[in-house]
Amino acid sequence: EDEVKKIVKRLIENGVDDEQIKEIVKRQGVDERIVDKVLKELK
């Protein structure tokens, strides 16, 4: 989960929008619920 957080944070800093972040992270095989949780925490 910490790995996911790092990735998502980097994507947000690069101006990637939420939908794209979800797609990218899902392609890495991460559960969507984890992605949603991380996005909420970082906003």
Rank of each mutant, 00 (worst) to 15 (best):
E1W: 15
E19M: 11
E23H: 09
D18Y: 13
L11F: 04
V30M: 11
E19I: 11
V25P: 00
L11M: 08
R33K: 13
E1T: 09
K5A: 07
I21N: 00
V8Q: 00
K43G: 09
K40C: 05
D31V: 05
L42A: 05
R27K: 13
V25M: 15
K37W: 07
Q28P: 02
L42I: 10
K43H: 13
D17G: 13
E19R: 09
E3K: 08
K6Y: 08
K9A: 12
Q20Y: 07
I21D: 00
R27H: 08
R27C: 05
G29Y: 03
G29F: 04
G29K: 03
E13M: 13
L42T: 04
D17H: 10
G15Y: 04
Q28A: 13
E41D: 11
K40S: 11
V25H: 02
D36Q: 09
E19D: 13
E13G: 07
V30A: 07
V38M: 08
V16F: 15
K43A: 10
V4K: 01
E23W: 09
K26V: 14
D36L: 13
E3W: 15
K37N: 06
D36S: 09
D17L: 10
K6H: 08
E19Q: 12
I12T: 04
E3G: 07
K22W: 07
K6Q: 13
E23P: 01
V38E: 01
V30Q: 04
I24T: 05
G29V: 03
R27G: 11
E19A: 13
V8N: 00
V4A: 05
R27A: 14
G15H: 06
K6D: 11
E41M: 10
Q28C: 14
K22A: 05
I7H: 05
L42F: 06
D17T: 14
E32A: 12
N14K: 14
G29S: 03
V30W: 15
L39D: 01
G15M: 05
E3Q: 11
Q20C: 02
R10F: 15
N14P: 00
K22Y: 11
L42V: 08
D18P: 14
E13K: 11
K5V: 10
E3S: 09
K9S: 09
V35I: 15
E23A: 13
K9V: 08
E1F: 14
D2N: 09
E32G: 11
K37V: 05
Q28L: 15
E32T: 09
D2I: 09
D17K: 11
I7M: 14
R33D: 12
G15T: 02
D2C: 03
D31K: 05
R10S: 13
R33V: 10
I34W: 07
V25E: 01
K22H: 06
I21F: 01
R33L: 11
N14Q: 15
V38L: 12
E23L: 13
V8S: 01
V30T: 04
E13N: 09
D31R: 04
L39W: 03
K5N: 04
I7Q: 08
E23Y: 08
E32N: 06
E32F: 07
N14I: 14
R10K: 14
L39Q: 02
G29D: 03
V4M: 05
I12S: 04
V16P: 01
D31P: 13
I12D: 01
K43D: 06
D2L: 10
I7V: 08
K43W: 07
E1D: 09
E32Q: 09
D2Y: 09
V30R: 04
E3I: 11
I7D: 02
R10M: 15
G15F: 04
E19L: 11
K6N: 12
K6S: 12
V38Q: 02
I34E: 04
K5T: 07
L11W: 03
V16W: 15
V25R: 00
L39R: 03
V4Y: 03
D36P: 01
D2R: 07
E41N: 06
K43M: 09
R10G: 13
E1G: 05
V30N: 03
E13I: 09
V8I: 15
E19S: 10
G15Q: 04
V16Q: 06
D36W: 06
D36I: 14
K6R: 14
Q20T: 15
K6V: 11
K9I: 12
K43F: 08
G29H: 04
K43S: 08
L39N: 01
K26G: 11
D18T: 12
V4T: 04
I21V: 05
I12A: 05
V16C: 09
I34A: 04
D36R: 07
R27E: 07
K5L: 09
L42C: 02
K5F: 09
E32Y: 07
V8T: 02
R10E: 15
V35H: 01
V38G: 00
E23G: 05
L42R: 02
I21C: 02
G15N: 06
R33Q: 12
K6M: 14
V25D: 00
Q28N: 09
L39Y: 03
L11P: 00
D36M: 12
D17E: 10
E32K: 06
K22V: 09
K37H: 06
V25Q: 03
L39P: 00
I7P: 00
V38T: 03
R10N: 13
E19T: 10
K9N: 07
K5P: 02
I24W: 09
L39H: 02
E3T: 09
D31H: 08
V16Y: 15
I12Y: 12
I34Q: 05
D31G: 05
R10D: 13
D2T: 08
R10H: 14
D31E: 10
R33E: 12
V16G: 02
K5H: 07
L11K: 00
L42Y: 05
K5M: 10
E3F: 13
E13F: 10
V4H: 01
G29N: 05
I34M: 12
D36E: 14
K6C: 05
K37P: 01
E1N: 08
D17F: 06
K40Q: 13
D2Q: 10
V16S: 06
K5I: 12
K37R: 13
V35F: 07
L11T: 00
G15P: 00
E32H: 08
